[in-house]
């Protein structure tokens, strides 16, 4: 479904991704963990070309994504949920959800709104359809952002630290929605520090360190018996 081949990324002199090779199968729930600055976010941002790799290849369904075709490839295949939600503040919740379906996916207003209400039900926020995002709590905004991603009905959703900007009390409501989604046949790539979530939903966990994937395996493997000393240190600090 997603395939990164020898992906390198430089920001100036900084080598943030070093020959990353990673494959994500259809319907797989992949969790990427690692310390900050390890290249986790850059890795997922290369998957939808928010960052263009300095070298290497990214394939979606066997087709290489390039600067030229990225808009259409992303539109048809990939949605994203951001750390800072990035809802459109000048639009109501409903309009946030219907904008792309109407303007990009050629849905009628009625179809788009039905779709929007359906996914508002999924995230449990139907009653917020007509308010502006700024009136919602962080957790609610992130649930709306997830609903917006779902409205595109793509097979892949990328989550870039979806709970890192949230108050501790609201983290769980967002995780609950993601756990619910994980039961569907959606391919999910999630950058997160939430180990409970990883243990519960991940098919596979990869650990990144200084721009490289240094260990990967099932959640059990990670939590029971990680091989790499760096991984052990990290998990020791993060699991309470």
């Amino acid at each position: 479904m997603i395939k990164l081949v020898n992906v390198n990324k430089f920001f100036g002199d900084l080598h943030v991704l070093k020959d990353v090779n990673l494959e994500v199968a259809e319907g797989e729930k992949l969790v990427i963990i690692g310390p900050s600055g390890s290249g986790k976010s850059t890795t997922v941002r290369c998957m939808n070309f928010l960052e263009e790799p300095t070298s290497g290849h990214v394939y979606i369904n066997g087709k290489e994504i390039t600067n030229k075709n990225k808009t259409k490839m992303v539109r048809d295949n990939i949605s994203m949920v951001f750390q800072q939600f990035n809802l459109y503040p000048h639009l109501t919740v409903l309009k946030n959800l219907t904008l792309a379906p109407m303007k990009l996916h050629h849905k009628s207003k009625k179809e788009a709104e039905e779709l929007a209400y359906h996914y508002l039900d999924v995230v449990g926020l139907r009653d917020k359809a007509h308010v502006y995002p700024s009136t919602l709590s962080g957790g609610q905004q992130q649930r709306i952002a997830i609903a917006r991603a779902l409205c595109a009905q793509t097979k892949i959703i990328l989550f870039d630290e979806p709970t890192s900007a949230l108050d501790p009390e609201t983290i769980q409501e967002v995780l609950d929605v993601m756990i619910k989604l994980a039961k569907e046949n959606i391919t999910m790539v999630v950058v997160t520090h939430e180990m409970g979530f990883a243990r519960q939903v991940a098919d596979r966990v990869v650990f990144m360190h200084r721009g490289e994937i240094i260990e990967e395996g099932t959640p059990e493997h990670f939590f029971v018996n990680p091989e790499n000393e760096r991984v052990r240190q990290f998990l020791g600090k993060i699991i309470r």
Binding site: N48, L50, K72, R75, S79, F82, K103, R148, A152
Partner: peptide, 8 residues
């Protein structure tokens, strides 16, 4: 980024 990620 949100706009790009939606395919605008």
């Amino acid at each position: 980024e949100a706009a790009h990620s939606q395919g605008f």
